[in-house]
């Protein structure tokens, strides 16, 4: 086949344009969906099923809830100012592996159950927390 000679097989300078475009898009998405700025009110975990909000759980209050959505049951647990999916019978387990979320704009998504947990409310006042848990 003669096409082999026309194919550029080594990375070149033009490829950096594509890398830059992808990085720019990532940065735009980051600033659009994790905006700074204060909002009043305490943080709460918003649980949605099929795009409809079913419950708001304040993060300062310990809570255990079970939700049944699209044939799957998820146990959502609020403790120590964070929320996690403690247990799920969905096949992918991505929601459980996501772990604890505690900052505004973070979310847990369970695609099989079409359930999302998103944190709304006032930010915690830090841009970044470094070095936590090092002493353990």
């Amino acid at each position: 086949m003669s096409m082999n000679r026309s194919v550029k097989l080594k990375p070149n300078a033009a490829d950096l344009l594509i890398v830059a475009a992808v990085l720019l898009l990532a940065a735009l998405a980051l600033f659009r969906f994790f905006p700074g700025g204060a909002r009043d009110g305490a943080q709460s975990a918003v649980v949605s099923i099929d795009g409809k909000i079913v419950e708001r759980l304040p993060l300062f209050q310990r809570a255990q809830r079970s939700y049944t959505a699209n044939g799957y049951t998820l146990r959502v647990s609020v403790e120590d100012g964070g929320v996690r999916v403690a247990q799920s019978d969905c096949p992918t387990q991505d929601c459980v592996h996501t772990g604890v979320i505690s900052r505004r704009g973070q979310s847990i998504v369970c695609l099989p159950a079409r359930l999302t947990v998103t944190i709304e409310g006032a930010p915690d006042g830090y841009d970044l927390v470094v070095g936590q848990g090092v002493a353990e």
């Binding site: 898009l25 990532a26 994790f34 949605s48 795009g51 998504v109 695609l111 079409r114 999302t116």
Partner: peptide, 18 residues
Amino acid sequence: LGNAAPLAYLPVLLLVSL
């Protein structure tokens, strides 16, 4: 899902795609 929550994954997914 019918809401904007998955968009929060976009930045990380784009970095992984590099």
